[in-house]
Each structure stands twice: as C-alpha cells, then as structure tokens.
C-alpha cells in the first residue's frame, strides 16, 4: 500500500495546494503506516521536484516530457493512469484546483475509484477514511466514506494545513506513455500579476455598494495585505469587475484566512462562495445587511471612508 500525492506545478514552481495535498497525504500515510509517493507531470520539472520532500514525500516520481508542458486532460489522464497502475496506491490525494477537478473526475471514472471531490478535511475513524465536503453551496457539510481499492481525495485549496516534515524524497524519472489524445493546446493568456482568488490568504471583495468600476481603494488594501480582489455577482453584472473575480454560487468558492466584504449585502448565493473563510469582515452602511450575521467583525459605515482608513491603519502597524 502507498499513498500517492499529485503535485501541480505552475510557472516554475508548485501551486500551494500541492503542499496542502502532500501534508494531507502524509497524515494518511502515517496512519496507514506506508510510504507517501509524490508524482509530478510536466516538462523540465525535474529540478524543482526535490522540493516535495520537505512536505513528506518518501519518493518523488517525475514524468517529464515536452508534450506535458501544458496540462491537457487526455495526456495527463493517460500518463497518470499508467503510473497509478504501476504504483498501486490505495489513496490518491490532489488539490481540487481547476485542473484537479478535471483530472480527478476523469480518473475516477476510468479507474472506478471512489472520489471525494472538493473536500475540506479528512480523518480516520478506525480503519475507515472519512472526508468532509460542503454541499448545497456550503449550507450542509457531508462526511463521506469512500470505499473500494482506490480512493481519491480532491482537497479544496486553502483548507488543509501545510506541514513541513522532511523525508528522503529520492527523485525518480518514470517513462511517459502519452496514449491516444484528442485535445490539443492552442494558446493561453495569463495575468501573472494577479493573485489567484482560490489561493489567496486575504481577499478584499467589492459589491454593488462600490457604485462604479473604481475599485482602487480595494486594490490598494488587497495589495498591502498580499491579497486578491474579489467581487459579488452584482458588481460583475454591472461590469465593475471581470467574471473571473466573482465569488459565490456561480463564481469561485474561496477559503482565505481573511475575507473583507465591502458594500456587499450578503445574499445566500454570495455566502455560498465565501462562508468557509476563516475570518470574515463586513463593511456596509446598512446596519441591517444580512452579511453582518455571517461576519466575525462588522463595521457599519461608508466603504469610501472606512477602507482608506483601514489601509492607513494597516500601514501603521506594518511600520
């Protein structure tokens, strides 16, 4: 028995969720008394692979091929299926990133594996692995028991703690069998300067209460806190922000350490995207706004006065 953790590399490093998956994988492997094997797919990823040993990988498999430079569902599923067939893990852990959601679904169907998608934690009850996942936009949490010989956990980013536990982590190259592929890469457009919402530790979100596309005060505060700017659907519908910034039932589901909702009323569809944030701050001029009942800290007042004042205060404590 082994536990396999799938690493996800991006722009010359690993996504944060990789370390979260490894840390979770380590806990599971320790419980089962087995090895944690990490798997990296990509092109020219061998150099960075040894990084994974820090988070508990006993062994690191690298599938390195020019064709794996860009994530494509066919080639990635084929290569992973091949490697899983050889490693025979009992549990596979990966991040439920865009890529993780895609590939875990395909793998589960191909391998007839029990998949717990977008789970926020996992534990053992005796010999039984149990993972908890939000449903109904976070209105309900389900404890799910995956059964069978192969279990796949796709972990919601920013949910599992990252824990360093250095292991030997010998890096080993494995042969790459691309198999039959249909989907081909055409191009990509990346906004390198932007912090990804689902991975951000701090999110400053603006709603209809911002009144215009001028989100400068939110951007300034977000930048100071090394965070990202999010938005309500209303703000997106009014063209204040792009769709990719939307948080909620039909937007991104985020779990930052700190979520600051500015001029957002707190509709249930918005809460669906951010209620698993660790600390929620609401700033709204309407003391009756629903968001206050979900916030750890509420401030009643005008965003245009409060946000710059908060930024100034943060600057003070940062010296």
């Amino acid at each position: 028995m082994t536990v396999l953790a799938i690493a996800e590399q991006s722009q010359g490093g690993f996504r944060k969720v990789t370390y979260e998956a490894l840390s979770q994988g380590r806990v599971i492997a320790d419980h089962l008394g087995c090895d944690l094997v990490a798997l990296v797919l990509g092109a020219g990823v061998k150099e960075i692979a040894s990084e994974l040993a820090k988070y508990g990988a006993d062994k690191i498999l690298v599938a390195d091929a020019p064709e794996l430079a860009e994530y494509l569902i066919d080639s990635y599923t084929n290569v992973m299926t091949d490697i899983i067939g050889k490693v025979c893990p009992g549990v596979v852990v990966m991040g439920a990133s865009t890529r993780g959601k895609d590939i875990s679904a395909r793998l589960a169907a191909r391998l007839n594996a029990a998949l717990v998608m977008d789970c926020v934690s996992a534990r053992f009850d005796g010999q039984n692995l149990i993972a908890t996942r939000p449903m109904y936009g976070g209105k309900i949490y389900a404890d799910v028991m995956p059964e069978g010989n192969l279990k796949i956990l796709a972990l919601r980013p920013n949910s599992a703690p990252m824990v360093q536990s250095p292991k030997a982590g010998a890096v080993e190259s494995v042969p790459v069998n691309l198999g039959k592929t249909c989907v081909t890469f055409i191009e990509k457009t990346m906004d390198a300067a932007k912090t990804e919402l689902t991975e951000a530790d701090v999110i400053v979100s603006g709603g209809a209460g911002m009144g215009s596309a001028n989100f400068g005060i939110l951007e300034e505060l977000a930048a100071l806190l090394n965070g990202a700017v999010g938005a309500s659907r209303s703000a997106v519908d009014q063209g204040f922000r792009p769709h990719s910034d939307q948080v909620g039932q039909t937007g991104k589901v985020v779990s930052p350490n700190l979520y600051i909702a500015c001029g957002i009323s707190g509709a249930i569809q918005h809460l669906a995207g951010m209620s698993s944030s660790k600390v929620i701050v609401a700033i709204n001029k309407d003391p009756e706004a629903a968001i206050f009942s979900k916030a750890d800290y509420g401030v009643v007042g005008d965003v245009f006065e409060l946000v710059p004042a908060i930024t100034a205060e943060v600057r003070k404590i940062r010296g």
Partner: peptide, 20 residues
C-alpha cells in the same frame, strides 16, 4: 455506490459577530 454519505451536519456556527 463507491462513496457513502455517513453523516450530514450544518457548518460550524460562527461566534456571534462583533460590531466595531
């Protein structure tokens, strides 16, 4: 089914928020 829901719960309640 390969996955079984063994328990549903409501999400952890937040402590009553604090108005600053």
């Amino acid at each position: 089914p390969l996955t079984k829901i063994i328990r549903l719960t409501f999400p952890p309640q937040r402590k009553a928020g604090q108005i600053i």
